[in-house]
Write a protein that binds this DNA or RNA. Structure first.
Lengths: 142, 142
DNA sequence: GTACCTGCAAAAGATTTGCATCTTT
DNA sequence: AAAGATGCAAATCTTTTGCAGGTAC
C-alpha cells in the first residue's frame, strides 16, 4: 500500500490536480493486486468514500491510462481490468477462472528483445511486447 | 475465400447444422482478413443476406469460439474482434490505428517453447502463449 | 418428427457523455 | 479567478437472452 505522499507526487508529476477521488482510485489500484475491474474499484473505494460517482471512477481511470500511470488489461468477458503497476511484466491468465496473475521475467524479456533485434518486422517499430500466458493451475499432488 | 464445400465440411465436422447464416458468418471470417468486429461481419453479410439477425451472428460467433473454429481477439476499445484463422500466430497491434495484423513466426514459437521447457512456472501448466506486439508503422523514407 | 436454429425485440451490462456545481491551484 | 474535476442521470454501445416460429437432418 503506497502512502499518500507518493500518490500525491505521482498525480502532481503527471500534471493532475490532487483530488480525494483520484487519490482513492490510485490507492485502490495499489492495494488491490487482483487486476480489478472498474466495478471492483468502485466497491473498494466506497467503503471509505461512499459518495464517489461511477462516472468519476471511469474518467479517472481513463485519465491515468492516457498518462501511462496505469495499464488496461483486456479480457474475453467484455470487461476491462486495470493494473496499477507499470513496470515491465506479463500476465498469466488462468483458463478455469478469471484470475490473472503477474509474471515478471527479465531473462525472457531479454531473450525476446534480442530475437527481435536480429529479426526485424518490416516497416514496423516495436514499442512493447506483452505475453498472454494461458493455462491452468496444477493441484498439489499430496 | 474458402469455398462452400470446405465450409460445409467444417460445420459438419464440428457437429453443427449447416445453415445459410452459419455459412455466411464463416465465409465472412475467411474473406475479411481484418479481424472484424461482430458489427463488421454483420455489415458484410447483409450485402448478400439482408435479413440475418444481429443476435444470430453473435450466437454463431460464440458457438464457433466454443468449438475452437475461430478465435476471439481482445482490444482496448470494449469491442471484441474475431479471427477465422486458428493456426498458431500472434498479433501486431498498431498503436496509431485499430489495425491488427497477423504475425507468423515458428522460430520464435520454438524459442519460447524451449525457454519454458527449462524454466517452468511453479504449479502451472501452460496451454498457450500469445504475443501482443504493439508498435507503429515506419513510413517509407523516399 | 425432433432437435436444433433463427429472428425479433427487449434486457442487461459496461462505459461514456453533458452539464451544472464544486474544488484545486 | 480560472481551469479543471466531480456528481448525477441519461444516453450509448456492445452483447445476451427468451421465446415463438422455422429449418436441417
Amino acid at each position: 500500500m503506497a502512502n499518500d505522499i507518493e500518490i500525491r507526487d505521482k498525480l502532481m508529476h503527471n500534471g493532475l490536480k490532487v483530488t480525494p477521488q483520484r487519490v482513492a482510485v490510485l490507492e485502490a489500484l495499489f492495494d488491490l493486486r487482483t487486476h480489478p475491474t472498474a466495478d471492483n474499484i468502485i466497491e473498494y473505494i466506497r467503503q471509505n468514500h461512499p459518495n464517489i460517482a461511477v462516472g468519476t471512477v471511469y474518467k479517472t481511470l481513463e485519465t491515468f491510462v492516457e498518462k501511462s500511470m496505469i495499464q488496461k488489461i483486456v479480457t474475453e468477458n467484455n470487461v476491462m481490468r486495470y493494473d496499477g503497476y507499470t513496470d515491465k511484466h506479463h500476465h498469466i491468465y488462468f483458463a478455469d477462472s478469471d484470475n490473472i496473475e503477474d509474471y515478471y521475467d527479465d531473462d525472457l524479456n531479454n531473450l525476446i528483445e534480442q530475437y527481435f533485434n536480429e529479426k526485424k518486422i518490416p516497416n514496423f517499430k516495436i514499442e512493447d511486447i506483452k505475453l498472454q500466458i494461458v493455462g491452468r493451475h496444477i493441484p498439489n499432488s499430496h
